[in-house]
């Protein structure tokens, strides 16, 4: 059986909010190392991969592999009943029909309990190859969100060019063009404001802004975002979850291909 307790319901609320624009139904795969999720969007352009490590919970118990097939809009409805600061416990039997969610207010004066019906989801998992990316950029997550939203006013796609000079996000549309260039800089007092660029070779790729803006729904989960790029492979956009236990929310986006 599964029994996992999260100190802050907010974490799951925000994860579900961040992915529900891309994915309708998906399996939450639970095993002794934690809760994982992998799903493509309907048009097979983007892939979401989440890992919530057992260490993110206290306590965490899962004796055998359990797949919780969940409709995300139903889960969103149930999670609306949880206050952000509530303690959230997820429970399921070994071959479950439902997942049980308990929300406890931090003052412990109220306990809410919901059973969410599960679905059978026959989901194919993709093998994500280990990639040595040519460029990786670590930057404030809100800055990335702002750039994507601003450039979406200009065009439906953005080119991301990374050179030793910096990273340039550029869009060209009917009304004109726009670009934002970021150079590497460190902010000692506010490290979350730093921009770090790790480059082994220059990269230039184009991506759909609609998807990138969708990914940035995860902004409130982490102060930083990491973009990893190599020519002719999907972009990786990564948010760290729940600090320091290597839990993550990753989005992969297939590039646009010139003809």
């Amino acid at each position: 059986m599964l029994e996992s307790r999260l100190e802050q319901a907010d974490l799951l609320k925000k994860v579900v909010e961040a992915i529900s624009g891309l994915v309708n139904d998906c399996n939450f795969d639970c095993n002794d190392s934690g809760i994982a999720l992998q799903a493509m969007d309907n048009s097979h352009v983007a892939l979401v991969s989440m890992m919530l490590k057992a260490e993110a919970f206290s306590p965490y118990r899962c004796d055998r592999n359990i797949a919780l097939g969940i409709n995300l809009s139903s889960l969103t409805k149930v999670l609306r009943a949880a206050q952000s600061s509530d303690i959230l416990t997820l429970k399921a039997e070994d071959a479950p029909d439902v997942v049980n969610l308990v929300f406890e207010s931090s003052e412990k004066d109220r306990i809410s309990e919901y059973d969410l019906k599960l679905m059978d989801i026959d989901q194919e998992h993709l093998g994500i190859p280990e990639t040595e990316y040519a460029a990786s950029i670590s930057m404030p997550s809100n800055e990335f969100q702002r750039i994507c939203k601003d450039l979406m006013n200009i065009s439906e796609s953005v080119s991301i060019e990374c050179t030793k000079e910096g990273v340039k996000f550029a869009a060209a549309g009917d009304i004109g063009t726009g670009s934002v260039t970021l150079k590497q800089h460190s902010n000692v007092d506010k490290p979350e404001q730093s921009v770090e660029i790790d480059l082994s070779e220059p990269v230039a790729l184009s991506f759909s802004l609609k998807y990138l803006v969708n990914f940035t729904k995860a902004t409130s989960l982490a102060s930083k975002v990491k973009l990893s790029l190599s020519n002719e492979v999907p972009l990786l956009v990564e948010y760290e979850l729940s600090g320091g236990n290597s839990s993550y929310l990753r989005f992969y986006l297939a590039p646009k291909i010139g003809d």
């Binding site: 993709l126 999907p234 291909i257």
Partner: peptide
């Protein structure tokens, strides 16, 4: 003009 690639052409089925 550019075409949107599919994620499945990069990541194979397991």
């Amino acid at each position: 003009p550019s075409k949107q690639g599919s994620i499945m052409s990069f990541f194979g089925k397991k």
